[in-house]
Amino acid sequence: MARNLLKNPNGEENMEYWELTENGGDEWRVEEMPGDCGHAFTDDATTKYFTTSFELCLKKQLIDLLAEGYSSEELDNQPAVHVEDWYCGRTDCGCVYQLTVCLLDENKEVIQEFTPESVTLDPDTDDCSWKQITHTFSEYGPGVRFISFEHGGQDTKYWQGWFGVRVTGSSVTIDL
């Protein structure tokens, strides 16, 4: 099985390894599963998640593929790059989720980007339970040396506190 290149994907180490690119409202925090007005996760081994506030909260990791042990030759063969993320809302407040993953060259210029439409979860029309998003990059050309993974969101009611989207189980893997 390919190893997850994201460090601290579930908040077990608080915010360690994550760069907070937007930290609005009451800022990011880590909570225990399932949390207030929350949902159980699909995997009992995942016990924590990151949660956002009433203003936009985004966090990012930049993966240096050469530092992770991949050779230029391996990367130039364009191995499949798999991305996975899990997100959910609360049962009492709507939220917005967003994700952007970029394959970058040695100068950190974008080779290929995955930015799905933002997702709005509304407890009046959706159960807001944990949902998975996946994407596989392929045939992107040679030159990939870094991967940028950024996700987050906020709540839709502008309630003070941590009523925004919850994220956990993030992963980036490479098939050699």
Rank of each mutant, 00 (worst) to 15 (best):
Met1Val: 11
Ala2Ile: 00
Arg3His: 11
Leu5Thr: 08
Leu5Arg: 06
Asn10Tyr: 04
Asn10Lys: 06
Asn10Ala: 05
Glu12Trp: 08
Asn14Trp: 10
Glu19Trp: 01
Glu19His: 08
Glu19Phe: 10
Leu20Pro: 13
Asn23Ile: 08
Gly24Trp: 06
Gly24Thr: 09
Gly25Thr: 04
Asp26Met: 12
Asp26Ile: 03
Met33Phe: 00
Gly35Ser: 08
Asp36Glu: 10
Ala40Thr: 02
Thr42Ser: 11
Thr42Ala: 11
Thr42Ile: 04
Asp43Trp: 04
Asp43Arg: 11
Thr47Ile: 14
Lys48Ile: 00
Lys48Cys: 07
Tyr49Cys: 13
Thr52Arg: 00
Glu55Thr: 05
Glu55Ile: 01
Leu56Asp: 08
Cys57Thr: 05
Cys57Tyr: 01
Lys59Ala: 13
Leu62Tyr: 08
Ile63Thr: 10
Asp64Ile: 09
Asp64Met: 10
Asp64Arg: 05
Asp64Ala: 12
Leu65Trp: 09
Ala67Gln: 14
Ala67Arg: 09
Ala67Thr: 11
Glu68Ala: 15
Glu68Asp: 15
Gly69Glu: 08
Tyr70Ala: 04
Ser72Arg: 15
Ser72Leu: 15
Leu75Ile: 07
Asp76Ser: 05
Asp76Glu: 07
Asn77Arg: 14
Pro79Trp: 06
His82Ile: 02
Val83Cys: 14
Val83Gly: 08
Val83Gln: 03
Glu84Val: 14
Trp86Val: 00
Tyr87Arg: 03
Val96Ser: 09
Gln98Gly: 14
Gln98Cys: 15
Val101Gln: 02
Cys102Asn: 13
Asp105Gln: 03
Glu106Ala: 15
Val110Phe: 04
Gln112Cys: 07
Glu113Pro: 04
Pro116Val: 12
Ser118Asn: 15
Val119Trp: 01
Thr120Ile: 13
Leu121Ser: 05
Asp124Tyr: 14
Asp124Met: 14
Asp124Cys: 11
Thr125Glu: 12
Thr125Gln: 06
Asp126Arg: 02
Asp127Pro: 06
Lys131Trp: 01
Gln132Trp: 00
Ile133Tyr: 00
Ile133Thr: 13
Thr134Trp: 00
Thr136Lys: 09
Phe137Pro: 07
Phe137Met: 08
Gly141Cys: 08
Pro142Asp: 08
Val144His: 03
Phe146Ser: 11
Ile147Lys: 07
Gly152Glu: 07
Gly153Pro: 06
Asp155Gly: 13
Lys157Ala: 14
Trp159Leu: 14
Gly161Arg: 07
Trp162Tyr: 13
Phe163Thr: 07
Phe163Tyr: 15
Gly164Asn: 04
Val167Asp: 02
Val167Gln: 13
Ile174Leu: 15
Ile174Arg: 12
Asp175Phe: 02
